[in-house]
Design a protein around this nucleic acid. Structure first.
Lengths: 189, 189
DNA sequence: GTCTATAAGGCGATAGAC
DNA sequence: GTCTATCGCCTTATAGAC
């Protein structure tokens, strides 16, 4: 079945979210999916190969999710950023991509590639929003769009880290709200 | 020798920084420190026991480092926050404590305890700075001190995550600088 | 306190039958 | 395509001599 391959990818996506890369074993993927060892090594070269496929798929999902939120939101730049930052997020579950970044094995360039694609794409998306907002005169030109974009992504990722450390599930929402307040002060009309 | 115990702790602190908890093995600690297996299990119950001692020690170091920076800095609240946020930080190396937070084993409450102590202590320190600044009229009262403190810690931690993902070592410095610009706008005199 | 030897178990992966 | 059996390696320890 072609479904086996997809099932393995979907299961790996869940485990990468729950446990990251290093702590997830092929056996765990097999146990949860019900797929056998032979099938797994037929469809993929090994753990790393499956993880890359899962991370690429996750990247596509998350970028599509972002684009949909932005497309659905009519309003100015702040309304768009707000809509995205206010999506429900649970610090204790971690970010579906950011969760993986700190794993030691992720110094490997092949494992790094999908992470880099995700974060640099999101950076471009936010840069475009802030840049256009400045062009139309709706955002003060004190900060570079690129810098604001990088800060936005960092606030989000940092909220997950701090929230997990202090075991407060709503931390990401809290820090996003504070950051949005500061962004609102940069709005010019 | 009593030095053996300290040597094991110092070596574990380095490895926790480089590889986190799950990916660090007792054998790695022994190889790097030159201590033998027998000595290790004489001084500590096991890996977890050593890791907790190392994390508690690291927490003490980092809080002492913070307090020293603040004490050395004469100037207003913004000068103090700037002095701390502008310490040299390398995203590719990771935060000495934040590096560990995402490890799956760190759901264990004993491993979590030192992390929680570090982040909640830092949160209190920043809250005190922002709170006093508001009392003295040097900081606008739009934001709660607690919220600003949580945001400050998140910016720092998020910078490490994003920086590692896009492989830009100076990301933490960049986002701190952007954040400081936004804080400067909240200064009232 | 420190040493070496050993152990049970999981890891990532392969072999070869069906 | 999928199965079961097996592999060599590493992990976290423990045992018992010195």
């Amino acid at each position: 079945m072609a479904a086996t391959r997809e099932l393995l990818i979907d299961t790996m996506k869940l485990l990468l979210w729950e446990r990251g890369y290093d702590a997830t074993s092929p056996n765990q993927v097999l146990e949860r999916s019900g797929v056998g060892k032979g099938s797994f090594y037929h469809h993929f070269k090994g753990k790393k190969d499956l993880a890359i496929a899962a991370m690429e798929s996750r990247t596509d999902d998350l970028i599509a999710e972002f684009d949909q939120i932005i497309a659905q939101t009519d309003g100015d730049w702040l309304a768009q950023v707000s809509a995205y930052l206010r999506l429900p997020r649970h610090a204790l579950k971690g970010c579906r991509m950011g969760r993986i970044v700190q794993d030691p094995s992720v110094e490997d360039e092949q494992l790094l590639a999908p992470l880099e694609r995700y974060f640099s794409t999101m950076h471009k998306r936010f840069t475009a929003i802030y840049s256009e907002a400045q062009s139309s005169g709706a955002l003060v030109k004190i900060h570079k769009p690129e810098a604001l974009a990088k800060l936005t992504l960092s606030v989000l990722q940092g909220g997950f880290v701090v929230g997990r450390a202090v075991q407060q599930d709503d931390t990401v929402g809290d820090v996003c709200e504070s950051f949005l307040d500061m962004l609102a002060a940069l709005k010019t009309n």
